[in-house]
Structure formats: C-alpha cells, structure tokens
Amino acid sequence: MNNAFRLRDVVPLVLVLAFVFISIAPLLWLMLAAFKPTAEIIAVPPVWIPDFTYLQNFRDVLTQFWPFIVNSLVATLGATILALILAVPTAFALVNHRFRGREALADWILSTRMMPPIAAAVPLFVIFRGAGLLDSLWGLVIAYAGFNLPFAVWMTMSFIRRVPKELIEAARLEGCTWWQVLKDVVLPLSKSGLAAVATFVFIFAWNEFMLALFLTTREAKTFPVVISSFVGTGRVYWEYIAAASVIQCLPPVLFTFFMQKHIVSGVTMGAVKD
C-alpha cells in the first residue's frame, strides 16, 4: 500500500482532525485547570497555558481525599477479581458443554446485562441494609461484580470460542477433567483476551457512580461520589474538581491506549471481533 499523502486526503484529514480535537478539547480544558490556582481558574479572559509546576491542587485533593481513592481501587479490583472468578468457568462451560437450554441460558445471562441498575436499586438497598452491607466495600464489590458479570461472561465466551476445539477434545481424551482443561489448556491460550475482559470490568466499575451514591454514605464512599460533592449549593470547588478529574480519568484513559484493539469487541460485549 502506498503510504504517501495524496491531495484528495485533505478534506477527510481536516474532518478527522477536527473530530479528534472536539473529542478531547473539553476534557483537556478541565485537565489544564488542575494546574491553576483558583484565581486563574475564574479569570476572564482565561489563562490558556498554566504553570505545570503548580501542583497544590493535586496535593490538596490527595491529602484530603486519598482514603476514597483507595476505596474506589479496592472496590473496583475486588469486583474485577470476583467477576472473573465467576465468569470464566461459566463462559467455558457455556462454550464447551452441550446441554438442553444452553442457548436460552446464555441469552438470559446476556439479557441481565440490559437491566437498568435503577430497577434493582431499592431491592439491593433493602438486602444490603439487612445484611449490614450498606456503606461497606464488600457491598460495592458484590454489586459491581454482579452488574458486570453478564458482560464478563459474554466477552469471555467470545475469547474462549477461539481456542481450537481439537485441543480441548484431545485433552479430554487424555483423561483431563474439565477443570484441568480449563486451567491448563484454555486459560493459557486466552490470557490476553481475559486481560481485556478484566480491564473492561475494571473501567466499568471504576466509572460507576449511581450505585455508589446510595449504597455508601461515609466510610465506603468512592471517589466519584466525593467528586460529585464538590458541587454544593454554595461554592463550587473547581480546583478540586479539576485535579480530582485528572486522577479519576487516568485509569480509563491509560487503558484506552493499551486496549485500543479490544475496544470494539469490548463495547459490543464480544459480538464484534477486533
């Protein structure tokens, strides 16, 4: 293929660059505010380029709110691990075990992904209150793992399907149990796929806001819940919002760069191959 720039590339290129600019400029603008003192944030005309050595906002946010960043991390990691522990064997069984109602079961699991969280909100709140899971990280881990489980099962299925059937069959004929087949044949071969699944569950859980808003009150508040409280009825703490936004968006943005090739399959639950 010819790698040279052609004259008829001009119009598409302008379109693409404009699109990329519009996509990142608003976010970038808030990120820049993270490096500005309050006076510069509210200045009109705006201060375009801040002094990037000014890190007081980050210092303030980190020293005051680090426990909530830790909460977010713990809840998210816990949910990711729990979701994968449950999803991988299920996906493996749904792909490799023939039984009546298999498709219906897979469809049902998929359909639970479509359920709006608000529909489960009050019942979840009531069980959690009864079980002492309100305002606890365990509660968040359970809720996040549950809501991401259908996604994890489906995307994992799409990766496990790529493992050649002959290998699985051969291992079975050698006398391996299903558990051994999963552990010794399928897992090593779908490692990168499972990493993608884990990453997506991590991002979805990390980005979650509404459940955390009513499931946590003080101790287990996640970082997004804290950030939302920076917009009060009184003063709006833009300098905190900006610095906190940079911290909050760091994992998803980094993962976007590393997971680029899996994103299409991730956002369609594995229905579209990358």
Partner: peptide
C-alpha cells in the same frame, strides 16, 4: 485512541467537564 476517550472517561467527569465549559461566568 484519542477520540475514544470521551466514551471511556468517567461519565460523572464528563458532566463536570461540561459544567465547567458551559459555566455562565467562567
């Protein structure tokens, strides 16, 4: 990967970004 950022960024932060960009004063 640059233009994918809006859909991967935390939705709450997206709200914050536009509260800031569309703010009537600043």
């Amino acid at each position: 990967s640059l233009f994918m950022i809006p859909m991967m960024a935390t939705p709450l932060i997206v709200g914050m970004v536009f509260s800031y960009v569309f703010n009537p004063v600043l």
